[in-house]
Computed example of a mutant assay.
Amino acid sequence: MHTMWKGSISFGLVNIPIKLHTATEDKDIKLRTLHNKCHAPIKYEKICSVCEEEVKPEDIVKAYEYTKGKFVVLDHEELEKLHKENEEKAVEIIDFVKIEEIDPIYFDRSYYMSPNESGGKAYSLLRKALQESQKVGLAKIIIRSKEQLAIIRVYENTLVMETIHYPDEVRRAGDVPNVPAEDKVTGKELDTAILLIDQLTSKFEPEKYTDEYRTALLELIESKRSGKETVSPATKEPAASNVTDLMAALQASIDRTKPGKTSAAAVPKKKTAVAPRKKAAAAKVKKEA
């Protein structure tokens, strides 16, 4: 499993060297965008909205748009000073809480934690302590220059870190439009709804659930591929060239550089190869004449 971060867990005076591994993966099927005319992939270029010219990476700067059309430019050096990438990488546990107190809306991404060299015993100690106390560690970590909140918990005998949103990153539920303020339901309706919920209640078994759309899309792609219902980009016509044989051109270049050979200016030029279409056009004109 790929290691995407190395550092340590710290709480109090305890320090546990660990590695992070992404616990989930995006299995969305990526569809390319093609030109319908020739089935070639579409390229996306960075074009300046004023100069209308392609901008190179070294000519791009970061900026914050504080009002429409007005920006504060931030230099690379200024941003580097703010980044904490060069500081000691640590998952600093600042509190221990009950996981029931954290609403799922705060959860973001999951990472497996494995002990680094010499960290096995301390890793096991923290895992056991979390299990016995039925608590999770609330921590701070810096990943890709962003400081994030996270919790550390036990999942199938492995420590897992779940990054969570800061409170100001979660939008207010009260701002959601058209939500009824009061429950306008009858007792009979409520009893019927609860009965239906009871009948549909079962044990959570993740294996039962599949992405039906992804499965159907993969089947469609495979059926088209198997039936040879595929397309390829149209190839560009080769540009007219005076050189018809690459190896001959290379050899001629080598021969010209040998001592005692005639200078390049004295070497007779190779006749330009006539493209098949031009030959046909010339023949037609001659015939008509």
Rank of each mutant, 00 (worst) to 15 (best):
P115C: 14
D168N: 14
T163M: 07
K27H: 15
A248W: 10
F11R: 10
S202M: 01
I151K: 01
K258Q: 04
T67I: 08
A40F: 07
I93L: 01
I94H: 13
P233V: 01
R109M: 04
E222I: 12
G137L: 00
L220A: 15
A193G: 07
M113S: 02
A40L: 03
A252M: 15
D28R: 15
T215N: 09
S145F: 02
G187L: 12
R256T: 02
E156D: 09
T230D: 05
I93C: 03
G7K: 03
D211H: 07
L190A: 08
A23V: 10
K208R: 15
P206H: 10
L190D: 12
S124C: 03
T22M: 07
L159P: 01
K46H: 13
S10Y: 05
K140A: 00
A234I: 08
S241T: 14
I93F: 05
K81D: 00
T244Q: 03
V170M: 05
K284Y: 09
K184N: 14
V185P: 01
N242G: 15
M247K: 11
A234V: 14
A280G: 03
D108K: 07
G7M: 05
Y111T: 10
R172F: 00
K135S: 15
A173K: 15
A266V: 11
D198K: 15
A283Y: 08
L79P: 06
K62T: 04
